[in-house]
Design a protein around this nucleic acid. Structure first.
Lengths: 232, 232
DNA sequence: AGTCCCACTGTCAGATTCTGGCAGCAGCCG
DNA sequence: CGGCTGCTGCCAGAATCTGACAGTGGGACT
């Protein structure tokens, strides 16, 4: 096995462990010596991998995605840049910053001429139109990722307000509004909540009893009836 | 210099040449032997780089972007996925396909669990609203990339139609419309053309006499007056 | 046809790099 | 303190890479 392949294997191995793992264990599972493992870890860290080692504990990989060398066509990179620019204009400030960071990371590793081409890319995105939410959408995304219950006050189309406790599992981006898709505990059914009508967001630590992907799948089947599907 | 670094250098070296280059020349510029160059080329091809060699001619790199190993945070990859999904819903069919392809390429190199997470990603994009153009936007993007003149029939807001020959250098994506930004030969000034009002597109082979990036820069300065800037 | 240039492959000795084991230092914990 | 761990320097053997040579086959030009 070549060294570069082994480095990718090591990343994946680290990903599988959530608790800190000792270098000795990792070396054992990889079939290499501890000394080599330390060298590999150092190499990966040098490539930007967020691996943290602490004496007496072991190694942890902060969550993230490691992409191996990848080749994109002109149009594919145009699509990625345009898409990231669109995200960067969205009102969700953390996601917007993440899109900007991702573009900066890509630009950082490009040779000068390509970076210039990327910076001066000719696909532009207009300013995000539509309502601005009063809530922090990053809290909603976090609740979705961690499968936590979410409480809030909802003002429906008629103007009536109600307290809700929901299991959020998706976030829809439409032209003008963001929509939280969730299982509503009170109604015992799937519900869509326009983000601009949500207030008093309460991101709880309570895990909801279903898997996010299962909820998503189930919700999709309910869309086969001719309601307009937000798609994915 | 490590081998992996040399491989990236080789890619960049190939990028700088537009005409086919002989292996002997490349080896000379890299400071390595021809034999090693052949081995490096083979390695790069194995990693997916579109390098083509033909006996009697030399090597050519089909245009594209080679990204070295890269680390993204959860939120950054969420942003890229969401953005690409948005692009995939745009009416420009080629760009849309490119976005889908880019996501597929990323998914292909991910370990199973991450790929599943990406597929079942919970940020959804609503259907693209707004007018559908009758023209092929990929022709416009191609004209922009290659700095070619573009002819078409334009029907302005008042309904009056006119023949135009323009130097396109940017494409703006707004909520409902796509806008071609170009230098208009008839008006001798920058003009914006809504794509849904363009018909009879004529993508010429005539290169226009200015650099696209210079036009873009110049156009941006005209936006410092308080017109609303489409931004970038 | 003949010639030149070129991509591409096999082989092999020498240069280079990688690897594993050892020793040693420092930080954390019970 | 002792046990566990991360981390570094060192060095000999293993593995890999490199350069040189020889040879094959394809395309282009004369």
């Amino acid at each position: 096995m070549s060294r570069s392949a082994r480095l990718l294997d090591l990343i994946q191995l680290l990903r599988r462990h959530r608790r800190p793992v000792s270098g000795r264990t990792l070396a054992g599972e990889m079939g290499i010596s501890i000394r080599t493992l330390y060298r590999d870890i150092a190499t990966l860290q040098g490539q930007g991998a967020p691996i943290e080692g602490e004496a007496g504990l072991g190694y942890v990989l902060r969550p993230g995605f490691m992409l191996p060398p990848l080749m994109f066509t002109d149009e594919e990179i145009e699509a990625i840049v345009l898409g990231s620019r669109w995200v960067a204009k969205q009102p969700d400030s953390r996601l917007s910053a993440a899109a900007t960071d991702a573009l900066a990371k890509i630009a950082a590793v490009l040779p000068d001429d390509l970076r210039e081409e990327l910076d001066a890319s000719t696909l532009l995105v207009g300013p995000a139109a539509g309502a601005v939410e009063g809530i922090d959408l990053s809290l909603v995304r976090q609740a979705i990722r961690n499968e936590r219950k979410l409480g809030f006050l909802y003002r429906d189309a008629g103007g009536a307000a109600s307290e809700r406790m929901v299991w959020p599992f998706a976030l829809g981006f439409f032209d003008k509004v963001r929509v939280v898709v969730a299982w509503c505990e009170a109604r015992q059914d799937f519900r869509h909540f326009r983000a601009d009508r949500i207030s008093g967001l309460n991101a709880t630590d309570v895990r909801y009893p279903r898997r996010r992907q299962a909820l998503l799948r189930e919700w999709r089947t309910t869309l086969d009836t001719p309601r307009s599907p937000p798609g994915g």
